[in-house]
């Protein structure tokens, strides 16, 4: 059933790793970033007396930052450009002409890119971290499983958000600006850079309602152990509800635009 989609993921993975020097450059960039990020947090924690007030030790913070970088590999690869490009140059007709579900095909395209990210980001960080920068790993199997499931749902949420922005291309043609906005909103409201616990309370209340924390805050909290196992189910349900809502919104949008479809190039 999913064979055709997996074949698509595979070819995207291949397409994304075909240039070996580029691959190497991406791996090096990743490693440098991990090193830099650790230095920044170490400096912040050792230079200021406030470290205690957020309830996180330096070790915990370094774990948080490293895992956040790994998560970035799952959410970073963008499909916005590809979707908007397809819409702008009209090549989207070819995707509509395949015997597949359009939304699912784009999802598996995204997964292909994510697999490429696993090679260029996840594995290098995991290796280097284990060898040189020890972090606190969860010991419970349940935590690990919940963490992985939570990433999976996070990927769905992120995918839908990007898809939404990409589809706006039908309306506004150029959506690069929207993509930047989405990137900033995610960076700010998801706990990607700064743990949500450090935000003022009114913002925390807002963030707890929005889907963005499903990307970073939830999987990270599970991983570093700032939430108790008793809360796992609630968090996964929260993520799941948002994932379903967003996927449905995108689905309705595709339907709508497909009906209106005006394809560039006559």
């Amino acid at each position: 059933m999913l064979k055709k989609y997996w074949a698509l993921s595979r070819i995207v993975l291949k397409n994304n790793t075909v240039y070996q020097l580029d691959l190497l450059a991406r791996i090096v960039t990743t490693l440098v970033s991990v090193f830099a990020l650790r230095q920044v947090w170490t400096a912040l924690f050792t230079q200021s007396a406030s470290s205690g007030t957020i309830g996180m030790s330096l070790d915990l913070m370094l774990t948080y930052a490293t895992i956040s970088m790994i998560l970035q590999a799952f959410y970073g690869p963008t499909i916005v450009w590809e979707i908007s490009q397809k819409i702008m140059d009209g090549n989207i007709v070819q995707d509509f002409q395949r015997p597949w579900d359009f939304q699912t095909s784009i999802l598996f395209r995204a997964l292909g890119k994510i697999f490429a990210g696993v090679i260029t980001v996840v594995i290098p960080i995991a290796v280097v971290t284990c060898l040189f920068f020890p972090i606190q790993l969860p010991t419970s199997i349940v935590t690990w499983m919940t963490f992985l499931l939570s990433i999976l749902i996070g990927i769905m949420i992120n995918f839908s958000l990007q898809f939404f922005v990409g589809l706006l291309s039908f309306v506004f043609v150029e959506v690069w600006g929207f993509e930047i906005v989405l990137g900033l909103v995610i960076a700010f409201f998801s706990g990607k850079i700064i743990p949500i616990a450090m935000y003022p309370e009114f913002l925390q209340n807002l963030i707890h309602l929005l889907p963005f924390r499903g990307l970073f805050d939830i999987p990270l909290s599970i991983f570093v152990g700032t939430v108790a196992p008793a809360q796992y189910l609630d968090l996964l349900i929260f993520q799941g509800i948002w994932a379903v809502i967003l996927m449905l919104i995108v689905r309705v949008m595709i339907r709508y635009f497909q009906r209106l479809l005006v394809v560039a190039g006559g």
């Binding site: 055709k4 698509l8 070819i11 291949k14 397409n15 015997p99």
Partner: peptide, 14 residues
């Protein structure tokens, strides 16, 4: 960016 053959392999699956 891929060999022509790869495009056909994908179509085989699709």
């Amino acid at each position: 960016d891929l060999p022509l053959r790869d495009s056909f392999d994908l179509l085989k699956a699709i």
